[in-house]
Write a protein that binds this DNA or RNA. Structure first.
Lengths: 120, 120
DNA sequence: CAGGATCCGTGGGGATACTG
DNA sequence: CAGTATCCCCACGGATCCTG
């Protein structure tokens, strides 16, 4: 538990905060969900993220790549350049964490729903 | 894995995103770390968060309370009002999630450190 | 002691246009 | 196709002051 007592977001690295930083950002988590089971192209990804601008997608992808969570593959062999994104091994190691967070979110939502039901 | 395919942050609830929203905020995660093993007073908490303004602390605490993660106790029995904060049962259910995220962050940092070492 | 109200700056993100 | 560059706005958060 001592590792959790660090200062956070203002000085030295706190492991928990590192994780949050990597996951945070308007589209990071859903992008990771999308890439969890498959490789995807930039435009493919964009189409699955309704509401996300290209600028935003670029920024989020750049950050994830910079954090070594995803990797970009560029195919310049023919004219319309094709790029694709897939998880790195580090990115894959994040999957169980994401799954637990997702599971907790689910039970949280359920708990609140039940509480609301039994309330009024 | 289907639960992870929701749209995120713009429409209906996505469990993973729910978790991120609850944890996100400049001081949320570290506040939870602080309250993990003990109940703390407002000022006590503030002292452990160097750089956090009182306004910020109030906002973060209000959000956590609103999300039913922490609970506030007010003691009006004597003049300088004393309030204290502690985790709710929902908040306690978050602890294992936080621990996994922290553990992953730790291994992530280690991985990057090693990579940097072997690099240059 | 534990906040709330107000004022204000600044940077995150949208819209749009341009490029290899 | 897959981005980058520019402009611009508003919401987040700091500083300061007020209150039960």
């Amino acid at each position: 538990m001592d590792a959790l007592t660090t200062q956070t977001r203002h000085g030295e690295a706190c492991p928990l905060d590192t994780t949050l930083k990597i996951l945070d950002g308007k589209w990071k988590s859903i992008i990771l969900c999308r890439l969890m089971n498959q490789e995807l192209r930039y435009t493919e990804l964009l189409k699955t993220l309704s509401g996300c601008t290209r600028r935003m997608l670029s920024l989020q992808l750049a950050q994830l790549e910079n954090d070594h969570i995803i990797q970009k593959e560029i195919d310049t062999s023919y004219v319309p350049i094709k790029t694709s994104y897939h998880l790195t091994s580090l990115g894959r190691s994040l999957v169980p964490v994401i799954q637990l967070m997702d599971a907790w979110g689910e039970s949280y939502i359920r708990a609140l729903t039940n509480a609301a039901d039994s309330d009024d």
